[in-house]
Design a protein around this nucleic acid. Structure first.
Lengths: 289, 289
DNA sequence: GTTCCGCATGAATCGATAG
DNA sequence: ACTATCGATTCATGCGGAA
C-alpha cells in the first residue's frame, strides 16, 4: 500500500483517487481558510469556498471507513463587518452530500492575538466540526480523559519535592489531605470545549494549530495502527501527531513548500522516535516499540 | 410610555405591535429551544423552528434602534445522533430578513455537569449570536474589561513590599521597569469567549442562564437609561440584570407561570435596590441613585 | 541550579489612504 | 465607486539569558 506513511504533493481531490474506498479511519484537517493564506495557497474567496470544498469532501466520504470520522477545523472570517456564512453553508451542503453532522467541538485559543476593534473583540475560538458516515462510529473516550479541573491540574503540576514531603508530614492540614485525594483518581471525561494555546514559538515550522490538537482527536477516534488522513497537511502537524501515536498517516498538500516542510518534519519525528526507543529499549515500556 | 419597566404576558409577536419603531437599544434573549416533544411547554419542533421564529424576528428588527444590537442565546439540540441544523438555517434566514450577523460569541459553561454518552461528550458551550441593523452600532467595550490573565495576576500578587521598593530604587533594572508597566493597567479587553458557570443554586427560580450573562451584554451594548428587551423573558433574569444596571427593561413571556415569576422577581429586585440606596444615601455614591 | 524577567510572535481586523 | 495596501492595535506563551 504505497499511500501509507507518506506525504504526497498535489490537490487532494486528485491524489485521493489512488486511495481505495473505506480505507481511512480518521480525516483531521484544517483547510486554508477563505482568502487567508494567499501567498502559499491559491486563496479561495469566501463566495467560492463551498464550491471549492465540496468535490474534495466527496472524495473524503469515499475513502473514509464507515466507522471513521472526519474532523474539520475551520473558522469563518469577517467580511464587511459581518461573519461570513460560508461555514454554515458548507455544513448544510456536506449533509446533502451524505455526511452526518455529529458534533461541533470548540477550540478555545487561550493565547489569542491581542487587540480589539471599534465594533469587535478579539476572536479566540475556532470550530472543530465532526462529521460521520454513520451514527455508529469508533470513539475511544477513555483515551482522552483529563485531570480533574484546572485547579487540581495547576496544583498538582506545582507540587515540588518539598510540597510532596509536606503532604506526607502534615496529614492533618487541609492541603495535604486534599492533594492525596486527587492522586490516583484524578481523571475525568472532557467536554466538547478544548482549551489549547496556539503554538507561537516553534522555531522551524509555524503550524496553524498545536500538536496537541490532532493528538487529542487521533486518540479519541482511532486505535494504534489505524490510518489518519490530512488532505491539507500544511507543515505536517497532523502527520507528526499520528506518527508519535503509532498510527499510519497520509498527508497531502498542493504547495511544494509545505510538501517539503511536512516531509522533513515526519523524517525528523521518525528519527527522534527511533533514538528514544533505543534509549529506553532496555525497560521495554516505550510507546513506540 | 406604558411598555417601560414592565413584564407583559403574551406572544412577543403580538405584544410588540404596541412598541414603536426604533425604540429598543438591546434585545437579549434565550428563546425556548426546539423540542421534539411538541406538547410540553410551548414546544416547537426543530423542523418548524425557523418558521416559528422569523415573524418574531421581524418585529425585533422593527423595534430595535439603528444603533441597537440583538443577542440571541441558542444551541441546537441533538436529533437522531446529529446536531440539528435549525440554528444555521435561522442565521441564514435572519440575514435575508435584513439582519447583519456581526459576531458569534461563545459561552463556555465552566461547571457543566459531568458525564458522557457512548458517542458524545458533555456539551459545555452555547452560542451567543450577535445581530445588528447596521455596521455601526453602540458598543461600550471599556465597560466589560477584565483583570489580566493568571500570569500577570500571579506575578503582581507576588509583589512583596521589598519588590516595590526595589522597583523604585533600581530604576535602571529591567525588572523594575516592567512591573511599573503593569501597575495601574491591570484591566484588559476580553475576547469573544465568555467563561461563566451556570447557576446551580438559585432558590426560587431556575434560570436558563446566569445573571452575569445578560449583565455582560447589557454593559457592552447599552448605557444607563437605555431600554433592554427580552421577548422570551422566562424567569426574568434579563429584566433583573437591566434593573440592577439602571437600564429600562421590557420583558415578555407567553407562559402565565413565567410571567408571574418574572414580575415577582423584578419587584423583589426593585425592593432590594431601594433598601440599598437608603442604606448608602448619606455618602451619595450609590449607583442606583 | 533555580527562579525570574525580557523578548519575539501568533489563521486578525478596521479605517484611512492610495491607485 | 470600487479594490488594494498599510499602520495601529497590545495579550498569552515559552524560550533563553540574567540574577
Amino acid at each position: 500500500m504505497e499511500y501509507l506513511d507518506r506525504i504526497l504533493l498535489g490537490d487532494c481531490e486528485n491524489v485521493l483517487a489512488n486511495v481505495p474506498d473505506n480505507s481511512v479511519d480518521l480525516i483531521f484537517t484544517s483547510p486554508p481558510y477563505a482568502d487567508q493564506r494567499r501567498h502559499t495557497y491559491g486563496g479561495v474567496s469566501p463566495a467560492e469556498y463551498v464550491d471549492w470544498f465540496l468535490p474534495k469532501a466527496k472524495e473524503f466520504l469515499r475513502v473514509l471507513k464507515p466507522t471513521g470520522t472526519f474532523v474539520l477545523n475551520i473558522k469563518e472570517r469577517v467580511v464587511n463587518g459581518e461573519r461570513h456564512t460560508y461555514v454554515l453553508e458548507l455544513i448544510l451542503e456536506l449533509r446533502k452530500q451524505g455526511w452526518l453532522w455529529t458534533e461541533e467541538f470548540m477550540w478555545h485559543k487561550k493565547n489569542s492575538y491581542p487587540g480589539k476593534w471599534p465594533n469587535r473583540f478579539r476572536d479566540s475560538w475556532e470550530r472543530l466540526l465532526q462529521f460521520n458516515k454513520h451514527r455508529h462510529f469508533n470513539m475511544y473516550q477513555d483515551a482522552v480523559m483529563v485531570p480533574v479541573g484546572d485547579w487540581a491540574k495547576t496544583r498538582l503540576s506545582k507540587l515540588s519535592e518539598t510540597d510532596q514531603i509536606r503532604d506526607e508530614s502534615k496529614v492533618s492540614s487541609g492541603f495535604g489531605k486534599n492533594v492525596s485525594n486527587w492522586i490516583g483518581r484524578d481523571m475525568v471525561y472532557p467536554t466538547n470545549v478544548i482549551h489549547m494555546s496556539t503554538e507561537c514559538s516553534n522555531r522551524n515550522h509555524s503550524a496553524a494549530f498545536p500538536l496537541e490538537l490532532p493528538t487529542w482527536f487521533i486518540k479519541l477516534f482511532t486505535g494504534e495502527g489505524d490510518l489518519v488522513l490530512d488532505p491539507f497537511v500544511g507543515s505536517g502537524t497532523t502527520a507528526e501527531a499520528a506518527k508519535i501515536l503509532g498510527r499510519h498517516y497520509l498527508g497531502i498538500d498542493s504547495s511544494p513548500d509545505f510538501y517539503k516542510l511536512a516531509e522533513e518534519r515526519v523524517i525528523q519525528t521518525q528519527r527522534r522516535l527511533l533514538e528514544k526507543s533505543e534509549t529506553y529499549s532496555t525497560n521495554g515500556n516505550d510507546e513506540s516499540s
